[in-house]
């Protein structure tokens, strides 16, 4: 393998820097003493905003709601996404393409369309806004994340493993529990974590299905439109980065390890 030209190296690293530098600035502004503007460089540094966030009940209520919604949406997405993957991973039947398109549709269509459509449906069925309505919206687009992870792993799973299990006397349920589940477990976990991160982060659909409730992204959006204590928003943003960073990193290592295991089957 030849060495990369210097210009390519610079362009590649520059591109990556472009992806990461803005996040560093968010961290920097957590410590600024200036709360009315985004003056650069910050006139002074302080740790007081961490204390302020700690005291703010509205933020913690929003965090609580977001965690609750993300957990529920993830559970629903795990169940429905796994079922769908089980049905579509190998089956060949008429209508398979439209069905798999249907699973992708919620993330392929603009969130605002999904959001308004669901809001209208709730309105027509006279369902009041609640945690349930937010979860319903989130699960809709989280299913595909679990589905994609599960389908990819199921397709790599040699069909002869399932045949071998049945050949040795296991019925369909034993085969699922003893062979399929252990082999797709990490993929499901990874899918679940990504679904969790996606839900924890979601703002557009939530805008339409939350009513007066405030998830963390909704809280942040209102701060972005009408900033009050700007550094407080920064502290919350860093918190959000951390909460989503860990499951994503875990999901990455889970799927990598899973590939190593699944790839060693033969």
């Amino acid at each position: 393998m030849t060495r990369a030209p210097l210009s390519l190296k610079i362009a590649a690293l520059g591109g990556l820097a472009f992806l990461h530098v803005p996040l560093l600035f968010i961290l920097l502004y957590c410590f600024t003493t200036e709360e009315k503007s985004y003056a650069f460089p910050p006139p002074g540094f302080t740790l007081k905003w961490f204390g302020v966030v700690w005291e703010r009940a509205d933020i913690w209520a929003a965090v609580g709601l977001s965690l609750k919604v993300a957990a529920l949406a993830t559970v629903i997405a795990l169940v429905l996404g796994t079922l769908a993957a089980g049905a579509l991973a190998r089956a060949r039947f008429f209508g398979r393409e439209p069905v798999s398109l249907l699973f992708v549709l919620p993330i392929a269509l603009p969130g605002i369309v999904t959001g308004i459509a669901l809001r209208q449906a709730f309105g027509m069925m006279e369902i009041p806004f609640s945690v349930f309505t937010i979860v319903l919206g989130h699960a809709t687009f989280c299913i595909v994340v679990v589905y994609n992870n599960a389908v990819a792993r199921l397709r790599r799973l040699s069909p002869s493993l399932i045949e071998a299990s049945m050949d040795l006397g296991a019925d369909a349920f034993q085969t699922f529990r003893l062979v399929v589940l252990p082999n797709i477990g990490t993929a499901l976990l990874a899918g679940g974590m990504l679904a969790f991160a996606l839900s924890f982060d979601e703002v557009i659909v939530t805008t339409f299905t939350a009513g007066q409730q405030s998830t963390l992204p909704i809280w942040m959006l209102s701060e972005l439109i009408r900033p009050r204590q700007r550094p407080v928003t920064n502290v919350v943003a860093v918190l959000v980065i951390l909460v989503t960073f860990l499951p994503i990193l875990a999901a990455y290592y889970l799927t990598r390890e899973g590939e190593a295991v699944a790839g060693s089957g033969k």
Binding site: P22, L23, I26, I241, T244
Partner: peptide, 17 residues
Amino acid sequence: MMPLWSSYLVKVYGWKL
């Protein structure tokens, strides 16, 4: 992958800054 999956709003906020 990290920026892809990190919070949409946080990223918008970074550019506002």
